Amino acid sequence: MTTFKLIINGKTLKGEITIEAVDAAEAEKIFKQYANDNGIDGEWTYDDATKTFTVTE
């Protein structure tokens, strides 16, 4: 398992979430479901060097 981080730069929600996932594809699926569940819709980026996803509304 690898640790992945999501940085949320939303209009109403900001913060960071860290999860353990098998790979970046699994982490992205989990993070996008979390964002969808919380009404966050924005532009996604991923930095493989730091294993960090960012979503900006």
Rank of each mutant, 00 (worst) to 15 (best):
M1F: 10
M1S: 14
M1P: 14
T2I: 09
T2N: 15
T2F: 08
T3I: 13
T3N: 08
T3Y: 01
T3E: 12
F4Y: 09
F4S: 01
F4V: 03
F4N: 00
F4H: 04
F4D: 00
L6P: 00
L6M: 04
L6Y: 04
L6A: 07
I7L: 05
I7D: 04
I7M: 02
I7T: 03
N9V: 11
G10Y: 12
G10A: 09
G10N: 10
G10L: 13
G10S: 07
G10I: 13
K11W: 07
K11R: 12
K11A: 13
K11G: 13
K11N: 14
T12K: 07
L13E: 15
L13I: 08
K14D: 10
K14S: 11
K14E: 13
G15E: 12
G15C: 01
E16W: 07
E16M: 01
I17W: 10
I17Y: 14
T18L: 05
T18N: 08
T18D: 11
T18A: 04
I19Y: 02
I19P: 00
E20H: 08
E20R: 05
A21P: 01
A21E: 15
A21T: 10
D23R: 12
D23K: 11
D23W: 11
A24Y: 09
A24T: 11
A24L: 06
A24M: 04
A24C: 02
A25F: 13
A25D: 13
A25V: 10
A25K: 12
A25H: 14
A25S: 12
E26Q: 10
E26M: 13
A27S: 13
A27Q: 00
A27D: 00
E28Q: 08
E28H: 06
E28M: 05
K29V: 15
K29F: 13
K29H: 15
K29I: 11
K29E: 05
K29P: 12
K29R: 09
K29Y: 15
K29N: 13
K29L: 08
I30H: 15
F31L: 05
F31D: 00
K32D: 07
K32W: 13
K32A: 08
Q33M: 07
Q33G: 07
Q33R: 05
Q33P: 03
Q33C: 02
Y34V: 06
Y34F: 15
A35W: 01
A35H: 01
A35I: 15
A35V: 06
N36W: 14
N36G: 10
N36M: 14
D37V: 05
N38H: 08
N38T: 12
N38K: 07
G39Q: 15
G39F: 08
G39S: 14
G39E: 15
G39T: 11
G39W: 08
I40K: 01
I40N: 01
I40Y: 05
I40H: 13
D41H: 01
D41A: 03
G42D: 06
G42N: 00
G42F: 00
G42E: 01
E43M: 06
W44P: 09
W44C: 02
W44G: 01
W44A: 02
W44D: 00
W44V: 06
T45I: 08
T45Y: 08
T45C: 02
T45W: 05
T45D: 07
Y46N: 10
Y46G: 04
Y46H: 10
D47F: 02
D47I: 11
D47W: 09
D47Y: 12
D47S: 10
D48G: 08
D48S: 08
D48R: 09
A49E: 08
A49K: 11
A49W: 10
T50N: 10
T50L: 14
T50E: 08
T50H: 11
K51S: 04
K51A: 11
K51Q: 07
K51H: 11
K51Y: 06
T52P: 00
T52C: 01
T54F: 05
T54P: 00
V55M: 09
V55P: 01
V55W: 02
T56L: 14
T56Q: 12
T56H: 04
E57H: 03
E57C: 01
E57T: 03
